[in-house]
């Protein structure tokens, strides 16, 4: 028993990263699943992390309320970003979410409330491994159910051909907005969990590199089913730990994964057909 405790203590942060990155990969998945691209996942995560950490540190708010806020704040921002851009072609959403990341960084660095470049430290460790993995499991179950439902089929139709989907009566703007908001909420949740297990957050953790890393999780796993991105996140989180030399070239590898995934395996490097089983039934 002591040995298990020791193991869990030693690798607590790594295990927590698996869960958090799994959630982030899922948040990317929702957007990709309807054929959109958001480069603001890191920013949504940062919003959730800072909102939750501030509530905990300054107001000593109860943890469930903190978690709720960490999802509502990014959701509100997603509405503001999505409203003008989702009417336009997908490129606009991608570029607008990049801007979101930059603006957030300026605000975080500048505001005294958020501790500026020094970030926020001394965040109590309120999110344990059980909570993190319960959230991940819950999200996975929810997405698997959605995938098999009418909504899932509509999302697939939008991804394959927007015009045809629209012609067959699917409410495009509603679906896109719902996906973006859900995605922002998941990323915010991941941010809050991460902040409440690693005790310290700073603006630089939520930059462009982080956004692209989250994209590489999802593309490695593929968006055929919600399990793909989570497995992708697990692999890309564990690999640099197992192969230390790889650590230096982490971003090089992530970049290559994205290129190969898009060019040669649009359904993901890992073939994981579970979501599709029964979907057509």
């Amino acid at each position: 028993m002591a040995q298990i405790d020791d193991f869990l203590w030693t690798y607590q942060n790594l295990l927590a990263s698996l869960g958090v990155n799994g959630l982030l990969a899922l948040s990317m998945y929702v957007v990709l699943a309807i054929g959109q691209l958001s480069l603001g996942q890191a920013a949504f995560m940062g919003l959730g992390a800072y909102a939750s950490a501030l509530l905990t540190l300054k107001l000593d708010a109860p943890f469930p309320a903190v978690i709720a806020a960490s999802m509502l704040v990014p959701a509100a921002v997603a509405l503001v970003i999505g409203a003008p851009t989702l009417r336009l072609s997908g490129v606009y959403l991608a570029l607008a979410t990049v801007s979101l990341g930059e603006i957030l960084r300026v605000v975080l660095v500048e505001s005294d409330l958020t501790g500026g470049a020094l970030g926020l430290s001394g965040i109590p460790e309120k999110a344990g491994l059980p909570l993190i993995f319960a959230c991940l499991a819950l999200a996975l179950v929810a997405f698997t159910l959605i995938c098999r439902s009418r909504i899932g089929r509509a999302m697939e139709a939008i991804r394959e051909d927007e015009i045809a989907a629209s012609a067959s009566g699917i409410d495009l703007p509603a679906y896109k907005m719902a996906a973006l908001v859900a995605s922002a909420m998941l990323a915010g949740l991941a941010g809050a969990l991460n902040a409440h297990i690693s005790s310290f957050i700073s603006p630089n953790e939520y930059g462009f590199d982080a956004a692209v890393t989250i994209l590489s999780f999802a593309l490695l796993g593929g968006i055929g089913s919600p399990f793909g991105p989570v497995i992708g996140a697990f692999i890309l989180t564990l690999l640099p730990e197992l192969l230390r030399p790889l650590h230096d070239y982490r971003l090089v590898v992530n970049g290559l994964i994205i290129v190969f995934a898009v060019l040669f395996m649009p359904h993901g490097l890992l073939v994981w057909p579970i979501g599709r089983i029964g979907a057509k039934a």
Binding site: G35, Q36, L37, L39, G90, V91, A94, D209, V212, L215, S216, L219, L251, V252, N254, G255, L256, I257, I258, V259, A261, V262, L263, P266
Partner: peptide, 12 residues
């Protein structure tokens, strides 16, 4: 969007 993603990966 596919070309955006490819060039994004390549840039990284």
């Amino acid at each position: 969007l596919a070309s955006l993603m490819v060039t994004l990966g390549a840039t990284l």
